[in-house]
Amino acid sequence: MTKLIDQLTGAPSRRAVLAGLGAGAAAVSLPGLARAQDKTLVVSNWGGDWNERTIKFVEAPLVESQGIKIVRDLGMEPERKAKLIAEKRLRRGTIDVIHINEGDSVELYAQEVIDNIDFSKVPNYADVVPALKSKPFFVPWLYSGVTIIYNKDKVPNPPKSYAELWDKKWAGKIGLTNQLYFNYIMMAGLIKGGNVTNTEEGKARLIELKELTQPRIYAAHQQLGAGLVNGEVDIAVNYKARGLQWANDGAPLAIGYPSEGAIAVMFGAALPKKAPSPDLSLIYFNAMLDPKAMAGLAGASFYAPANSKAELSPELKAKVDFTAAEAAALKFPDYAHVAKNTAEWLEWWNKNIAR
């Protein structure tokens, strides 16, 4: 498995690009075929506002409008990944599309539970930013970076780097979310001249951060955003896109790009190997990458779109994307390293930070 993961991560650098830019009997006996004829598609996705936007811009207008019934299996990614892996022993699975981040796609491919995608049958994939086409088993969709979000009314001199968070003056003022546990471990490893694979030292530094500042730990993004709005915390470490969403809702928030370079994140989807209706999955992937849908998603979510033909206004593009210098400084995770360690990291986070 290690050898396979290493082979999967030899993708070209993205930084330059980001800177610029018997049939009847079988139908009865095989439930998967019956489902396909009934045009039912099971989509594993996050819940909350992420799922609401997926429905609004992709699923309702572009998939369900074709007469395809979508059954939504919602939850956090560790549970959804575990379910997919557990179905490996079955002759046929229950999930047709799984929404995941790029790192999870590497892990699941190494586990042999997601499949290569025939992108010749996904026409909109041709317009994806070339540097994001790094894996044959992953549909790139939206991307952002882990930044420092702060209440500009209460924090006149905000941290300008990840490292500056390690200061007693921020005691009780920092908010983190369990959803980004792996990003925080990489962030802590990155400071003081480190890198995103310096994660053993990163874990030790997170213990130091906990002792210095006693950060509030929230279950999910939405709760962290509420904590910023109601004054429970003044600073959050989260995706730029999330900060822009909360500011757009009226919160007095600003976003600082860390001097170390923000840790990049990309979200998308994958095709389970035992998907009951893989042909419908391809229709779904094409809808995800529809340029109009992607423009709508960018405007609502403030994530940068993977489709280069998504028509964003200059103002929106400047808001959701990164400057040339910021894009060049983005820190892309070593997904081979992440895939080998993520399960142990989650256990460590739950025992040492989340409780």
Rank of each mutant, 00 (worst) to 15 (best):
Y162D: 07
V196G: 09
E164K: 12
S134P: 01
L84W: 05
K317L: 15
Y143W: 14
I98S: 01
T342Y: 10
E164L: 13
A60E: 13
M187I: 15
T177F: 02
G67L: 15
N248R: 07
A86T: 03
P159M: 12
A236N: 03
D167H: 08
G194D: 05
M288E: 07
F138P: 00
W246E: 13
L312E: 11
P156K: 00
W170H: 07
A188M: 11
N341Q: 09
A220R: 10
P305D: 00
G299K: 04
I85T: 01
D73H: 14
P314Y: 13
P123V: 14
V146L: 15
D334W: 00
V320G: 03
K154Q: 13
S313C: 04
A264I: 02
L180I: 00
E52F: 00
D153Q: 13
I85W: 03
L62F: 07
L289P: 01
I207E: 08
K133W: 04
Y257G: 07
D49H: 04
K154S: 14
H337V: 01
P291T: 08
G32W: 02
I148N: 02
F302R: 10
Y239T: 08
N195P: 05
P78G: 12
E260Q: 09
G175Y: 01
S13D: 15
A251L: 12
N116I: 08
L206R: 03
K340H: 08
K160H: 11
Y150F: 15
A82T: 03
P12R: 10
N350V: 12
A220F: 09
I85M: 09
W46M: 14
G299C: 11
A23N: 04
D279V: 13
G75M: 13
S301N: 02
K317N: 11
L176M: 13
I283G: 05
V63C: 08
L330F: 04
A306E: 04
N101I: 02
A318H: 03
L289Y: 04
A306Q: 03
G172A: 14
W170Q: 04
F285S: 07
G20V: 05
V97E: 00
A25Y: 06
G32P: 00
N198P: 00
K240T: 08
A25L: 15
A306W: 00
W170N: 03
L132K: 10
E87F: 06
A251C: 11
L280P: 09
Y239S: 14
F332G: 00
V113Y: 11
I148G: 02
L30W: 04
P278Q: 10
L228V: 10
A318Q: 09
N248C: 05
T342H: 07
Y218T: 12
D321A: 14
A27D: 03
I55T: 01
G227H: 02
G256M: 15
K135G: 00
W349L: 10
G250S: 07
G189W: 08
A163C: 06
G103A: 14
A310R: 04
M186Q: 14
G22Q: 06
G20W: 02
V43W: 04
F137H: 12
D279Q: 13
A241E: 06
R92D: 02
R15M: 11
A86I: 01
W46E: 11
W345F: 15
